[in-house]
Amino acid sequence: MTDVKMQIFRGEEGEGEMVEYTIGLDEGMVLLDCVHRIQHEQEAELSCRWNCKAGKCGSCSAEINGKARLMCMTRMSDIIEETPEDEVITVRPMKTFPHIKDLVTDVSWNYEMAKAVVPLKGPEETDWVFSQFEAERAQEFRTCIECFICQDTCHVLREYRKFDEFGGPRTMVRLANFEMHPMDQEDRIPEVKDEFGIGYCNINKCCTDVCPAGINITDNAIIPLKERVVDRYYDPIKMIWRTITGRKLRT
C-alpha cells in the first residue's frame, strides 16, 4: 500500500480551511474511497454526500483539483497522474451553491427549478405508439443523474448568480426532454424564453464538457430550444405579419 496526501475543505457555511490528510491507497481506489477511509479511520464527522458509488445517483459531486466531478468515478491513479508533483490533490465543495459543511452544499434551488417546470402532458389513452428513434431523442436527456455539476460549472450561475432569471443547463435538459417527447402536448416555448431565461446561455459548452452522463447539453438540448424560441419570437416574417395583422402566426 502506498500513501497519498490530499487537502479537503473543512468548515461550515463557507468558513473554514483546507486540511491535509494522508491515506493509504489500494489498487483501483476512487476518490470517494479515500473520503470514506478518512471518515472511518480519522474523522468520523467529515461530511460528504454519497449513495450508490457507481456513477448512477449523482450525489457525490465535488471540485477535485478545481474541476467539478463525481468522487465515485474519479480514480486515484488518474488524479495522482494529473496533479503536478509539487502540488497536493485538493477536494472542495461545489462553489455555486450555498455551503453547509465540509463537502456538502445546499442544492435545494435545483429542486425548486424542477418543480417550476410543467410536467409532461400526453393523450389520455394508454399504449402510446412511437418509434425507438423518437424515444431516443428524449432518452438522452433522461440519462441525467442530477449531480448538478453542470449547474456548478455554468458561469451564468457560478459567476453572475442569475438564479432568479436563469434555470441553468439542468433545467434546459429537463425542458428539452419534454419539448422533444413524442407525446407531449404542452407549449413550452414561452417558459423556456421568459421563466427560465434561455437567452442568458451563450453556448460556451462548459456544461457539456463536465457532464458525467455524457449528455450533449449544448448541441442537443440548448441550441434546439434556442432555435425554437427564435422561430417563435424573432422570425422577421412573423414579426411583419404581427405588425400588419395584430395577430400571432402559430407554426
Binding site: 410536467p119 409532461l120 394508454t126 402510446w128 405508439v129 412511437f130 418509434s131 425507438q132 424515444a135 417527447h181
Partner: peptide
C-alpha cells in the same frame, strides 16, 4: 403503462410499443 403517461420513455418494439 401508467408510468409512460407520467413521462417514462421506455425502449420500443418495431411496432412502437414498450419493448
Amino acid at each position: 403503462r401508467e408510468l409512460e403517461q407520467w413521462g417514462a420513455v421506455f425502449d420500443r418494439t418495431p411496432k412502437g410499443l414498450i419493448n
